[in-house]
Amino acid sequence: MVKLSVRDLRITYGEGPSEKVALSGVNLDIHEHEIFGIIGPANSGKTSFLRAINRMDEFTLGMDVRGSVKLDGTEVRDWANVYALRRRIGVVFPLPVGLPMSVYDNVALSPRLRGVRKRSVLDEKVEQCLTRAALWDEVKDRLGTLGSLLSGGQQQRLTIARALSQEPDLLLLDEFSIAVDPVTTMRIEDVLVDLKQDMTIVLVTNLVQQARRLADRTAFFLMGECVEIAETEELFTGEVKDPRTRDYVDGRFG
């Protein structure tokens, strides 16, 4: 089953002579229950791609998205309520953003936004999400501390727990390991593999080997172009259609 289908996607910033094309001519399908990796050097349009999926462009000055993005066969742009769309899509940012509220409130925020007030329901939800994000044991005794005071690795797991509290069926991760130590990175990677049963994951990563470890299929973005999409193992060991892909995964640039 195709979860996300992207056709002729073109993303630009600014207008007129100062217009910058971030991404163009992207066509790809992401299947249900797969981890779809996106690799590529900085400024390749990876983050812009993620922002187009949950319609963040509408809250970003100057960002313009053309083409088609379908989630479960419906055009995301046709959703009358953009917020309902975003509630189904979890996002994890490169730098962990622990909101300046307690650990508990961070995770309870999403249910509360939907009107859940009952303490017992919230308690259960918080514990469940923190456990799945492999953070519960570390914070269960200090749920009242500020989320922004946790360590970088803990904050990043907190943001994953927060994303899980949305009960998303699509999870977007944007270079989540950039500010996280290797041990935590491994723990989060285990979490992701586990989450795959319940949701589809798009993993933008700066680490080629991370894509190799986790992704079922991987796309290579370069300077606003989707150069190649392949089964991950193919990309690393088999024939590639474009020599630039080989150069990048072998670490010759990037």
């Binding site: 479960d72 066969g73 419906t74 046709d78 959703w79 009358a80 309520n81 953009v82 917020y83 309902a84 769309l85 509630r87 189904r88 936004l113 009107g115 009960e167 069926d169």
Partner: peptide, 20 residues
């Protein structure tokens, strides 16, 4: 959360109205 019916994806709710 159950997926909304394809006919009317993402119905406008109270939060949406409050925001407006």
């Amino acid at each position: 959360m159950a997926a909304p019916s394809p006919a009317r994806p993402g119905a406008r709710d109270l939060a949406w109205a409050g925001d407006k």
